[in-house]
Nucleic acid binder design. Structure first.
Lengths: 319, 319
DNA sequence: TTGTAAGCGTTATCAG
DNA sequence: CTGATAACGCTTACAA
């Protein structure tokens, strides 16, 4: 593999002039520049990125920390991040678990986008203190160098529930996700608030776990009761889908007997009969927004905009 | 940020002994080692990965070149790759387009797994010539340093079609993917072969594009015809799903009127009514297998096994 | 406009 | 067992 030294020798110049020419610096004679460039071409020279990184003390790598690949929400967000980072010529290193933290510690990345709830807040604060900019999704952390980007869960759920109250539903139940999940807590908050504003009380509360399986079980249990809600808001689409399946299997009509809504707008929900009413986040746009913010920070500019992804209420056949 | 120099100074030793101690080399007195280690801890020292990479001429990074994130097949394979690479302490840099090639050229990765059909064979050969090991999925390239891993498309399709012939179907049509797609071509080959073995001719051929949308349109066109096949083999599940939707909407009974099968075993197929018959590849296992092969190559060992992912025929309700 | 030389933070060779 | 010292391949003052 040829180095810049070889190029310099071949062009009969010093290493530094070679470097200047190769990096399009001004103040190098057009003729010598041409000579250097053609020498480089002949040798098929390419700079050694690692060496450049060491010298410039930046890697042009952004870490994206996930728990695992999989699921539509992840993929879409990642794709948005990928697009923008690529556009700005940053590489993306995806990683999970403790490997992620090593990347930070060993300065193999210039910053990181954190999409992994299994890393604790304290740990993140600790690393941010080392001066790495961190953008954290779906989680609220107040700290220097840490920027958070949150879905407007509460506000969106209030909108949807309010709409449904106006449509005449009265007995609202909530199918929850894990209690520790930030998204679940915020969505429940919105659920409660909307009802309170209209002087209604939650009719029931079911503890789910964000999975299709979990929603299905809740549905089966629900069938044993004689008194039932007329509307169930589910903390996410997946549990809503499981719930729908269970109810449909037992002949309960959706939405006539019980109406259902979810959150996330995953593709599967639109393949159900009836199609699932839900709240949609444009995850790809979200990814792009977050990645752009990272690029800005890394360029020393301040972040433009508020990093809030745009959500939309999508009323379909299940209500 | 403290460097090894700071640690050495604090422990009162030379840089080299510090390095030895920090890297668990033998031949360093237990006492000095302890002193160095505690100095490192106190300063909360962490080696600078980039500097290490430069010196050791290896990055511990593996490139994974994709066209874009999205789709269950991709996610699953990536997840498998991620698991294995992580286990062996390699980082994974995902990238697409020309950025991928830069990673190779600038030696920011030690090798790459290529899952992007938009990079031409010639380009890959060119880079492999530079000495980077490449593992290429879903494509056949014969070249030093390039290892290919192919699904046994042909064989699997023959199995499925043969089974269906035995079940009594007679008029077999093929819903194709893009003609340039390696997978599509191989699957069609299997389709033809199986029929020929039983002295049957393909009944019809529809040009799709691997998408749900595309399958749907084909389905709508098909309805205009009066003579129809009794079995449609689709080059992938997504087009099969689109096709099913179109047919179902027009009251055609599956499988009574027309039976359908796909390829890939994506989750959505199992949520359709009827459930989609398909050919399943364990993509996660495939990703793990491929990643393990990369690790082996990078460690200078030869690849164990033949890199062929395992496929299974999964007959469900749509046949 | 070009060259000299220092240095980025490591590892590794070779003496001691 | 420990310490100088030379790389790794590049960028960038500073000098010429």
């Amino acid at each position: 593999m040829p180095t810049i030294k070889d190029v310099a020798k071949k062009a009969g110049v010093s290493i530094s002039t070679a470097s200047y020419a190769l990096n399009d610096q001004p103040n190098v004679h057009p003729e010598t520049k041409a000579r250097i460039l053609s020498a480089a071409k002949e040798l098929s020279y390419h700079p050694h990125g690692i060496a450049r990184n060491l010298k410039k003390r930046q890697t042009k790598n952004v870490g994206v920390f996930i728990y695992a690949f999989g699921g539509p929400v992840f993929s879409e967000t990642l794709e948005g991040i990928r697009q923008t980072l690529q556009e700005h010529e940053f590489n993306i290193i995806v990683s999970s678990g403790t490997a992620s933290l090593n990347l930070l510690l060993e300065r193999q990345v210039d910053g990181a986008i954190v999409f992994d709830n299994h890393i604790s807040d304290d740990v993140l604060k600790h690393y941010a203190a080392h001066g790495m900019p961190l953008i954290v999704l779906d989680r609220l952390i107040q700290e220097e160098n840490i920027f958070t980007s949150l879905i407007e869960n509460e506000h969106l759920v209030i909108q949807l529930i309010t709409d449904m109250i106006h449509r005449g539903y009265k007995r609202f139940a909530y199918l929850a996700g894990p209690e520790t999940a930030f998204n679940n807590r915020m969505r429940f908050k919105g659920f409660e608030k909307a009802l309170k504003q209209h002087h209604l009380n939650p009719y029931d509360y079911y503890q789910g776990d964000f999975t299709i399986q979990g929603g299905y079980q809740i549905g089966k249990q629900l069938l044993k009761k004689t008194e039932r809600p007329d509307f169930i808001f589910c903390a996410n689409d997946e549990s809503a889908i499981g719930l729908m399946q269970a109810l449909k299997e037992s002949g309960i009509k959706i939405p006539q007997d019980i109406a259902i809504a979810g959150f996330d707008h995953i593709p599967l929900g639109q393949f159900m009969t009836p199609k699932l009413t839900t709240i949609g986040i444009d995850h790809q746009a979200w990814g792009r927004m977050v990645a752009k913010a990272m690029v800005d920070v890394l360029k020393g500019e301040s972040i433009k905009g508020n990093l809030k992804p745009i959500g939309k209420i999508l009323v379909k056949e299940s209500c």
